[in-house]
Design a protein around this nucleic acid. Structure first.
Lengths: 107, 107
DNA sequence: TCCATATTTCCATAATATTGGAAATATGGA
DNA sequence: TCCATATTTCCAATATTATGGAAATATGGA
């Protein structure tokens, strides 16, 4: 991942509503959700939500698939994992145990 | 970590110069670096760098310690690890292998 | 004390992002 | 075909952020 890609992804996540949308989609990965459901869950007006979903999609953090008259949005897990790797790259000059004692994001 | 804290941290990282500063400090963790060295490495004017370091510090991503007439900045690794955990919390409804095949940020 | 150096604050300019109402578009079902 | 519903685009007002020159502050050494 390049610096600019990472900045784009981080900027997409650095907004309260978008972060909530993304985390909801992470929770509902890999099935995904429709804007209708997302908006209902988070109490967001449709235009606002549409704007935020577009931003997340442009950053590569979610993908959209048309399903009849619905659109299914999904969290792009490889993307977020790539971002995470980028953030901790060469951590402590390679001496990992110095800064990530457990070394695992899932603990 | 709360949503607002996460947004603060993400916003701090969502800027090209600041992301570069943070990653440099991650690489040089846990010793840290002074603004002089950072500015030289990244080609940033002192006032700009000072502004960005302050922003990173306010977000809890770096800490500053006075050392004589230098200030030593360090990446706050527990903070970034907390942010990473927050981003992937309840991923796939707990079915981790679905979205993080390797499950480890360091691979 | 005085000076050189390290770092920060002040400030004005410029650029960018967020919001949601109203309207437009698209789709499937009656 | 016509309608109800899902989603997006348009738009303008508002708010937030980045930049770096000039000046201020702080520290140790001479």
């Amino acid at each position: 991942m390049e610096n600019k890609d990472a900045v784009n992804a981080l900027a997409a996540l650095a907004q309260e509503s978008r972060l909530a949308v993304f985390r909801l989609l992470v929770r509902f990965a890999p099935e995904g959700l429709t804007p209708g459901v997302i908006g209902e869950q988070l109490g967001l007006p449709a235009p606002t939500l549409s704007f935020h979903l577009k931003t997340l999609a442009q950053a590569g953090l979610v993908t959209a698939v048309q399903e009849g008259r619905f659109v299914r949005y999904r969290a792009e897990m490889p993307r977020i994992n790539g971002l995470i790797a980028f953030l901790t790259e060469d951590c402590c000059g390679g001496n990992l145990q110095l800064c990530t004692p457990k070394g695992n994001i899932n603990e």
